[in-house]
Structure formats: C-alpha cells, structure tokens
Design a binder for these strands. Structure first.
Lengths: 339, 339
DNA sequence: CTGAAAGCGCTTACAG
DNA sequence: CTGAAAGCGCTTACAG
C-alpha cells in the first residue's frame, strides 16, 4: 500500500485537511482534543508529510546544497562532517553535488526547488562561469572561490598560514627554502605560494619554487632534486601534506637526514601527518569548523537574504587562519607544540 | 526578481504551459518550430524547472538518500566518492544524512518525498528499529546492516579476503601462522578470523589466534609474544593494518627480520600501509566500488521495486571481495603486485 | 476554533 | 500537434 496522505488522516480523524495540517504543525488555534485525535490517527497510519509537496507550498525546502570539486581524501570528509554538524543543529538536510570537470553545466541550475541555498566550493571555476551556473536568487556561500561573487565568502587564509610556516622554518635555522607548489590555477596553491614568497622576502632568505601538483609523487620528485643537489635547500616546504609526506619518504630513501640536513613542512595537518616518521610539522586548518561556519552563514542568508547585518565582511571574505603545528620534521626535539 | 516559471515561458513564447512542458522534456509530438521557440525563450529567461513541483507531479524526485552512522575518516569519503560516481552517471542527486545516536527517530521518515530510495549503513541499529524508522514503500539497499531487512543487502566479503591472505602467506613459504584477531563482537573481525582459520585448515598449516583489538598496541603485544618465542610463527597476519603496523614496528624493535624470519600482513590497505618500511602486504577493500554498487542496486530497485530479477542474491547479501596487495612484508622483492 | 477554496509549479491524460 | 483542465500533496489567508 502506498504512503498515507494528509487526506487519509483527515478522513480517518473526521476533520478537514486544513485542521490536520494545523494540528500537526503546532498551530495555536487548535482544540486540544482535535489535535490529540489527529496525532493519534497520524501515528496509527504512519503518516509523514510529503517533503516535496510541503516545499512547493512553503517555497522552502529545508535542504541546502553543497557543491564540491571532488571527494578525495580526508579534507572533504572533515568538511562534510562540520557541515553536517551544523545542518543537523538547524534541522536542515544536505544535498551533495560533486562538480567535476566533465559534469554538465546545468548541474547547479537543476538544484532549483530542491534546496534553499548553496555552499559552493569551486576553486576551478571563474566568477563568470559560476555566476552563469547558479540559479538566480538562490542564497550562496562561497568557500575558497574567486572573489567578487554575490554571496558571503569564506576562505582559509592560506597566505598568512604559509607566511607563518616560512617564519617558523627561518626561526628553526633554515636559510634556503624550496617551496613545492600545488597545481597551477588552484587558488589554495597560489595563495600559499604567494604567502611563502612574501615571507621569505621579508625574512631575507632564499626561496625557490618547485612546481608540484598536490600528489605524493610530485613531492617525492621535488625531494629527489633536493637530495641530488639539483636544488639547494635546507628546508622543503610543500603546499600540502601529501606532497610533504612524499618528499619526506623520498629524502629518507636518498639518505638525507630530516630535519638535520633538510627540514620538511607541509600544510593541512591530515591525520597521516602525525603518523609518519619523523612526524610532520604542518599548518592545521580546522576544516570541520570551516564547514560548520559556512552552513551557519548560509542559514542566516536564507532567513534574511538581503540584510546588510548578515554580511560578515562586506569588503571581502571572512577568513579562517590556520594554526602552526610544530612536530619533528623541523625541530630536533620530540615535543609537539601548537601556537 | 524571482525565478521564471513555466507560465512565464508560456506567456513569452505564446503557447500553453503544456506545450512548454512537452517541448522542454523532449516529447515527440511537438512541432520543431514551436520547440525551438520555447527553447529560445526558456534560455533567455533562464528558466529552470522547479524540482519540487516536478517531483510532486511525477511522484519521483531523482534523488536518493544515503544514511551513514558517521563521517569520520577516509572510509566515508571513499564510500561517498563511489556513490557520487554512480549517482552522477544515473543523473541522480545525493541527499546525505548522518544518523548519530542522539538524532531524532524520525530523521529517516522525514525523507519521504525528498528521495526515491535509500542506501542505509546503520550497523548500530537492530532490524526492528530500522524497519520502524524507514518510510514504508521506499526502496532501500543496506550496507553492513543486520540481515533480514526488506531490501538488497551488500557487504564486504571479509572471510574470502582473509582466506586469500592465508593462501598467499602459505605460497610465500609460511607454515605456522599467528592471526591477530580484532575485538570480540566486531562483525568484520569475526569474519576475518573465521576465513583465516578455514583457509589454514584447508592448506594444512598451523594457525594460532591471538586476541587483539584493532589498535597498534595490541598488534605490538602480539608481535612481542612471537619475538620471544611464546608463540611460534613464521607469519603474523593481523585482522587490520593498524595492528599489523604495530606488530611490524615491534618485530623490528626485537631484531626480528621481516619478511625473512616472520612475514607480516594486514587488512584494509590504509594509506599508511604503503609508507611504513618495509611496505605492508595487505588486503585492499575497494570502498568506492562498494558505494557505487550500492547506488546501482538502488537505482534498479527504484525502477522495478518488486521484480525478482533485480534481486542479486535472494538468499543473503551480495559481497564485495577485497583484493590482495602484495608488498614487502611478505616477499623479498620490492615490486608491488596486485592480484 | 474550523472548513472550503485557492494556490505553489509542474505533468499528462483527454479532447480536439 | 496543441490547449484546457485535473491533479500531485501540502499550507494558509479568508470566512464563518
């Protein structure tokens, strides 16, 4: 048998569908006796309101969409975890959409009527492309996207994080830094590179940029160049932990002592970072907090789409600043220090 | 301005809303000239059908729900990645719901009208609880759930995987195997133990079960017993990689040569497995494939809810068989072989 | 406090 | 091939 509808409940309880709706939605002007009867019948029939019909009537779905460029690795599971935490607290549902290169251009547009707003992480798309794809009038919060989009923006302050790491390496004794950059065109990668370059300049130490692509293999390749002297460096700072770990393993393979001969540092603080030997010094980005904050901002925008008060930072994006996590690849001591 | 509706398009194109619907949905009986005009107007107005209204009319949402017990770690991101792959291929959307202990009992029921079916992973719930929560008539596929639910079931074939590993160890020369088991009561652990025991019997080699609890420490403790001869073994097969890695480190600490004196093997192929020295031989569970397969089964059930043909294995659950990944802890060579 | 009715935005028999 | 109309399942002014 199909699911019971509001009419079934109304008939069974001998009231109008309007009364069923009011009774079940907790409206005030309902006789207690009627409310009790309706609730009893609804429970007995296993009635659950049809979400689609409800959202059509209310012009509100109570769902938000999250658009991600990929789903590989711990970063995304942490982000989703943070979002889910907040989404559950707000009584919302989460619709997940991965926007990979090949996927249709109307993937986002098709979300109209399915969600009340969007958290979008699309570092690979330009502002124009993104704007063209987004359903008009749908509140949105952008994570690590190009600036200049209509919506709240939230980002990780990669430049500040990278600069902090360079400062730490210099304090630890480094004088010639090799920075293994992430893929060209990737916003995070570019910001980390820029922050590292600027900090090295300020500190007056040499910094060479080696092109990488966020994979362990590319980190290993960069380390090999350092190991055989093709690149001179007493510190290797990779733009993410995966590359740093690839480099770490490669350096050990080449018989280079870490951190004595070459200091190694990463970015992200993935779980593996604590488990490699020596444990990896890195920048911790509280990814779950980033996700939770994004949902929070979106929820406010959904309630008050145009209110200026909602704008966190009208000038630009609100920023999450990563924290330095010092482990064994940059210092001889074993103590883990967090600043 | 709000989003354009089908009426706006109809008015602008000077046709009926019925024609707009037919033209845009690719119905056959539409004059090409009319179709072209409607498409032009729809594009100009940026018209996108309202998903909620569409699903109310069609009694189909083109979305599926995935219910997970948690979101921590690589396992879930891999699972979601596999699901997303298949979901995108099928033109569906994915609604994510985390069903943690505290969360309301009607979390699942509220999905009615929002999804066409559910992939449920709820190892913490009994069959009765689960049945009570699921909206009646909603197709479902269960992952690692208790048996006996109305729906397709899918699971990892732990026993077959463990048996394959024992066979590999025997082929590599092992004659006395110590199996470090996982915690009592854990389904995965029990199945792996049973598979290992059966395979050892078939192969006619000795196998001792040592109790562990999936932690590195318990693996190290088991290894210590092997190292000091309390347990005689020329191979140590741990029920997961964490214990295997703990054992590996402990064996090295006790001066036992791996794999020459004692072969070591794990289960899961966590990222760390490739990074330890020597690299760990293990069983790879293709989690993404598990997720993709679940969505595939669900999609079929949605199309043909009651067809017997759709039933993969009416007797029980369809199983994903892990693959053997041979690395350096069981062979002297360095080559990584996958079977 | 309650019911009849309109409406949310679509799709699809039903006539023509 | 096309339009007018009914209907999907809900909510909420509008009367009473």
């Amino acid at each position: 048998m199909p699911n019971a509808t509001i009419r079934d409940v109304a008939r069974e309880a001998q009231v109008s569908v309007a009364s069923v709706s009011r009774a079940l939605n907790g409206h005030e002007r309902v006789r207690p006796e009627l409310r009790a009867r309706v609730q009893e019948v609804a429970a007995r029939l296993g009635y659950v309101p049809h979400a689609g019909a409800r959202s059509l009537s209310l012009a509100r779905t109570s769902a938000i969409g999250v658009v991600l460029p990929d789903l590989h690795g711990e970063f995304f599971s942490e982000l989703l975890r943070g979002m889910d935490r907040e989404v559950a607290a707000q009584g919302l549902a989460l619709l997940l959409t991965v926007l990979q290169d090949g996927r249709g251009l109307n993937t986002l547009a098709a979300l109209r009527g399915q969600v009340d707003g969007l958290v979008v992480m699309a570092p690979q798309l330009g502002a124009a492309e993104l704007r063209a794809q987004l359903p008009a009038g749908l509140p949105a919060v952008f994570l690590n996207c190009v600036p200049g989009l209509a919506g709240a923006a939230l980002r990780v302050d990669n430049a500040a994080g990278a600069a902090a790491m360079v400062d730490h390496l210099v304090a630890a004794g480094a004088r010639t830094i090799a920075h293994v950059a992430g893929p060209v065109g990737n916003v995070d990668a570019e910001e980390r590179r820029a922050g590292a370059v600027a900090a090295a300049e300020r500190a007056g130490v040499a910094l060479t940029v080696v092109q990488g692509d966020f994979t362990e293999a590319s980190g290993a390749a960069a380390a090999a160049q350092v190991a055989r002297g093709a690149i001179r460096a007493d510190a290797l700072f990779a733009a993410n932990d995966a590359m740093a770990i690839g480099a770490l393993v490669a350096l050990k393979g080449h018989g280079v002592a870490v951190p004595r001969q070459v200091r190694v540092a990463g970015f992200d603080d993935i779980p593996l970072a604590r488990l490699v030997t020596p444990a990896l010094t890195t920048m911790r980005v509280d990814i779950a907090a980033l996700g939770a904050r994004a949902v929070q901002l979106l929820a406010r925008r959904i309630v008050a789409p145009a209110e200026g008060l909602v704008e966190v930072d009208p000038a630009g994006a609100e920023a999450i600043v990563p924290r330095l996590v010092v482990r064994d690849t940059t210092t001889e001591t074993d103590r883990e220090t967090q600043s």
